[in-house]
């Protein structure tokens, strides 16, 4: 049995300690609902929930955003940056580019990314994922596009404001419960101390998990992601559909090579 952390208090306080532990447990196991504030008796008022997302703020795959001329691309990326100003927006640019020497292109892109304050997240023979400061996104996208023949480009914006606000609110409430429990240990007897400790251990685990999720979510909106693929390799996209025009159904790489 673990020794109590602090001297025990009299048994008269057992009822109130048990009640507080019960409240803590309830808080620990209850999954807060979206836009719901924690109980006022335990927690201070949570930040107000953000308004529902408008259609324009939903995750978007914006192929045309970085298609076309550099001016349009710059405007699209500037728009993405502007959105980041008042909302927590995760910006991801995906580019499929064909280059003659992927290894050389990869090295040049990594060097350029580092020079503008970014860093590589994933480096493989066929893929390169980069984290770049939002301000440098346009230059990195241009660098990638200029390194070869661009087959496909998309710019995606995902609003993570709600998620981050909720994570912060949950974290704050759990930390306050933890602080209250810590205060109870001064006056608790052995049994109560053990129960409080068990609850605190559980809460600490949850706080750490929430803090990790918050760190990931916050980091994802503080820099943009550039996903570069050197190969158009989406095999699952090739499907067999029938055309009403018979000769079109013969247009197929396997048929062509087989008949050649």
């Amino acid at each position: 049995m673990m020794p109590p952390l602090l001297p025990c208090a009299g048994p008269g306080r057992l009822g109130s300690i048990a009640a507080l532990v019960g409240v803590a447990l309830l808080g620990a196991v209850t999954v807060p609902r979206a836009n719901a504030a924690p109980p006022a008796s335990v927690l201070p008022a949570a930040p107000p929930a953000p308004p529902p997302k408008a259609a324009g703020e939903r995750p978007t795959g914006d192929q045309s955003a970085i298609d076309g001329d550099p001016k349009a691309r710059a405007e699209a990326i500037a728009k993405a940056r502007a959105a980041v100003g008042d909302r927590d927006v995760q910006v991801t640019a995906s580019i499929v580019v064909k280059v003659i020497h992927p290894a050389e292109a990869r090295k040049v892109l990594i060097d350029h990314t580092k020079s503008v304050g970014g860093w590589p997240l994933l480096v493989t023979n066929q893929e390169l994922h980069l984290a770049v400061p939002l301000a440098a996104l346009a230059t990195v996208v241009d660098q990638v596009a200029g390194s070869g023949i661009v087959l496909q480009k998309t710019l995606q914006r995902v609003d993570r404001t709600d998620e981050i606000v909720q994570l912060r609110a949950k974290l704050k409430s759990k930390r306050e419960i933890l602080a209250r429990l810590r205060g109870l240990l001064d006056d608790a007897d052995t049994n109560s101390t053990l129960r409080v400790e068990a609850t605190m251990n559980q809460l600490v685990g949850e706080v750490e998990q929430l803090q990790g999720e918050l760190n990931v979510a916050t980091a994802s909106v503080q820099s943009a992601r550039v996903m570069v693929a050197f190969q158009y390799h989406q095999r699952q996209r090739i499907s067999y559909v029938n055309s009403p025009f018979q000769w079109l159904n013969k247009l197929d790489i396997d048929r062509f090579l087989g008949d050649f």
């Binding site: 087959l151 996209r237 000769w247 247009l251």
Partner: peptide
């Protein structure tokens, strides 16, 4: 060689061909 059936002009067939192959997942 393929039959031009139903008989159509070049823009028609170019459009039909593009739509069909894009629907199949060709880029």
């Amino acid at each position: 060689t393929e039959r031009n059936y139903p008989k159509a002009d070049l823009p028609f067939w170019a459009d039909a061909m593009e739509r069909h192959l894009v629907a199949r997942g060709y880029l």
